[in-house]
Amino acid sequence: MRGIKILERLLYTIPIMFGVAILVFLFMRMTPGDPVDIMMGEAGSIAPGEMEQLRKEFHLDQPLHVQLYLFLSDALHGNLGYSYAYKKPVADLIMEQLPATIELALGALLFGLIIAVPIGIWSAVKQYSIVDRVSMAGAFLGVSMPAFWLGILLILIFSVRLRWLPVTGRIDYNAGLQVVTGFYVLDSILTRNTVALVSSLKHLILPSVALGAGTAAMVARVLRSSMIEALRQDYVTLARAKGVRETWVVLKHALRNALIPTVTVVGIQVGVLLGGNMIVEQVFSWPGLGRLAVRAIFSRDFPLVQGVVMVYALTFVLANLVVDILYTYINPKITL
C-alpha cells in the first residue's frame, strides 16, 4: 500500500516539474538583460552581424511561444539544451557539479545534526539552566550570522592563521583520487585511498561548518521546544511514575514524539542546504551547482538557469516526499 502511495506521489512530481519549467522559462525572459549583449561584454572587437547571428543560434530571434515550444519538446526528450557560455549540454554541466553540491549538503547536514540533536535535548531537559541559555544564545547567533561572514572568519582562523585546513576546492591534486561517482569522500573509500580520504574530509570541514551552522541552530531550537512540549505530556509523567529510567523517558518517550516537527524542519533544511549554498560555494571555491546557478543568472544563460532551477525544484519536491514517508515510520497513525 505504501509503495503504491509513494509511486503516486512520484507521479505528481511530473506536472509540478512541468509547471516549474514554464515558470522559469517565462521569468528568465521577463527579466531585463540580453544574454548575447552580456556575452559580448564591455569591450571592443566584435564583428558587425555577430550579435544577430548568436541570437539566431540561440533561437532568441524566434517569438516567445516558439522558444517555449522548442524548450519543452527538447526537455521532454531529456535534452535541456546547451549552455550559451560553456557551449556544453546543460545536463552534462549539472551532472558534473551536482555531486559536489550533494556532498557539501550532506556534510553540512551531518554537522548540523551532530551539534543540534544533543543541544536540543539537553537544553530541553535542563530548561533555563546555564547550558540552555548559552546554547540558545549560540543558536540565535547561528541563525542570524551570515554564512558569507562566517565562512571568511573560518578561513582566516583555520586556514590563514593556523594553517590546519585548506581554503579552496574539494581535494588536493596530489592525493591522486580516482573519480568513480563524483562524491570524493565516497570515492576515496571505494578506491581505498587514505590520502584522498583525509584530503577530501579536510576540504569538506570548513564549508560544512559554514553551511551547516544555520541548520544546527534552527534544528536545535525546534527540537528544544518540541522536547519541552513533549516532556510536559501525561505519558511522560506516567512513564516516570512507572519508574522508567530518566534517560529512557527522555530518549524513548519524549524524543520520539518531539521528532515530528523536527523532521519537518530538517526536511526543509535539506532543500535549503542543497539550493541555498551559493554563497558558501562561492567563498570556499566549491565547484557546485550554486556557483553555476549564480553565474548563469548574471550572464542570462537561459538554458543553464532553467536546468539548474528544475534540479532545485525537484530536490525540494523529493525532500518533502521523504519527510512525509518518514512521518509514517515515526508515527504509525500518519498515512501518506
Binding site: 578561513i155 582566516l156 586556514s159 590563514v160 579552496t168 567563498v283 570556499f284 571555491s285 565547484p287 556557483r291
Partner: peptide, 12 residues
C-alpha cells in the same frame, strides 16, 4: 584553480 571570491583568493 578557480577562486571567484576575492577575499578567498587572497586568503588562499
Amino acid at each position: 584553480k578557480i577562486i571567484p571570491e576575492r577575499s578567498s583568493r587572497v586568503a588562499a
